[in-house]
Amino acid sequence: MKACIVTIEDFKNYGNRLQNYALDRILKKHGIEVVNGLYVKTLADWTYSTNSKKRLLAKAVPFFMHKLRFKYNDYKAESKRDDLTKQRIKKFKEFSDRYVTTLPHYYVKNDEMLRKQIGDEEIDYYITGSDQVWNPYFAGYDYDFISFADRKKRFSFAASIGVDEIPNKDVDRYKKNLKEMNFISVREAQAAGLVKKLSGRDAEVFLDPTLCLDVEEWRNIEEKPSIDLPEKYIATYFLGDTPEQVKKYAQDNNYQLVEMNNKAYKDLFTINPGEFLYVIDNSDMMITDSFHAVVFSILFKKQFMVFYRSQKGVKSMSSRIDNILSIFNLTNQIQSEDTDIKSHVIDKEKYDEVHNILNDYKTRQLEMFLESLK
């Protein structure tokens, strides 16, 4: 049997690459051949646009010119990146090339062209997820719902919506796509509620695939960074703004900070996903606003604290973190930007309880998903 994983391709984001690796490995462990990726640029973004000028251009302009437009936009995005970001992307791509089989980029006119280029007749399942593949603000395109394939081939594994509401302009499209899925599992309870509201269908709530691999499987791909790490340190990974009280907490408690997403520390900013795992695993504590940094803190049984992301102009995506902390009864680890940091120690007994819950969830959802593929 052969599966194609449909996911976001982000060679700057650790969680994105590691969730892709995790789902790839889960499927391969159960005897399924896997290809990954599906980076697609299609005329659908203009054909169904609310902008009448774009709809007209989609029909009037020859496709080869649209293909040039797609490639030029990709080139323009690449040219705007600074050298540090380019170094990071290079290391991420090397990591992905080593661990997952990735499809080429596709620039297509329609679904028929896409099916032909993928080799659709050889694919038994398309699996969309995990990550925020259904977030309407930067994903959630029709191909993220596998709309180009036969309905019986459309599955989702812990697909995340990431927000509490779907914009009105996308509601009808989401309704149609959700109704046509064969099997739906989502990553958050809030997402399951949205699926029910939009389509009338029940969605299973699954853990992120990164939580479905054993700790030793993650340690097998860890890499020690070339830089020397302090003997005693707090690792931080903030995708939004770093709260001021983090530095104060480190100073007051005699920790050094190892900041993994701060361009001021170029050797840390450019570490690859395997090195990212090593830094978390060997830290004394993790402080973050990242969902996947929370995941690996839990897997490695680390002391951790989490802040809601503070980033101007970006929709709140806190439901992902709320959901996982609620499942494992770890909501005490949430910090407020308005007060000093309050450390809540997670003792061995508590982490034993957390991992018992994790093992129960993991076993149940993998059995359910594999059964859905039959």
Rank of each mutant, 00 (worst) to 15 (best):
R69Q: 12
F92T: 01
E367K: 15
F11N: 10
D202I: 13
E9A: 03
G240F: 01
F269C: 04
I184Q: 01
S343W: 02
N20R: 10
R81A: 07
E222R: 08
I227S: 02
Y237A: 06
A149Q: 08
V171Y: 00
A293P: 06
S49T: 00
T270K: 09
I26S: 09
E223A: 05
G240H: 03
P243D: 04
D281S: 14
R115H: 10
P230E: 06
I298C: 02
L211Y: 03
N220I: 12
Q365G: 06
M317I: 12
H30E: 13
K350Q: 14
N261L: 14
E9I: 05
H292V: 04
N182I: 05
I357L: 11
N332M: 08
L277C: 04
V205A: 03
F64R: 06
Y126F: 13
V345W: 07
Y126A: 05
V163F: 00
S297W: 05
K263T: 02
N323C: 07
Y125S: 08
P243N: 05
A191G: 12
Q190F: 09
P225I: 03
I5C: 09
K76P: 05
I280E: 04
N182F: 09
K91Q: 11
D83H: 04
L103G: 10
T102G: 04
I287A: 04
Y106L: 06
G313S: 08
V40N: 06
R320F: 03
S185M: 12
Q251R: 14
D45S: 13
Y174D: 02
L27W: 06
D24E: 10
A250L: 12
Q256T: 10
F155P: 05
E275A: 07
D289W: 05
K153A: 03
L68Y: 10
L257W: 05
D228W: 05
K176T: 03
D120P: 09
L103A: 11
M65L: 15
Y265M: 13
I327W: 02
D120E: 15
R173K: 14
K152S: 14
N262I: 07
V354T: 09
D111P: 01
W46Q: 12
D281W: 00
Y72G: 09
K76W: 10
Q251A: 13
F138P: 03
N182S: 12
D144L: 15
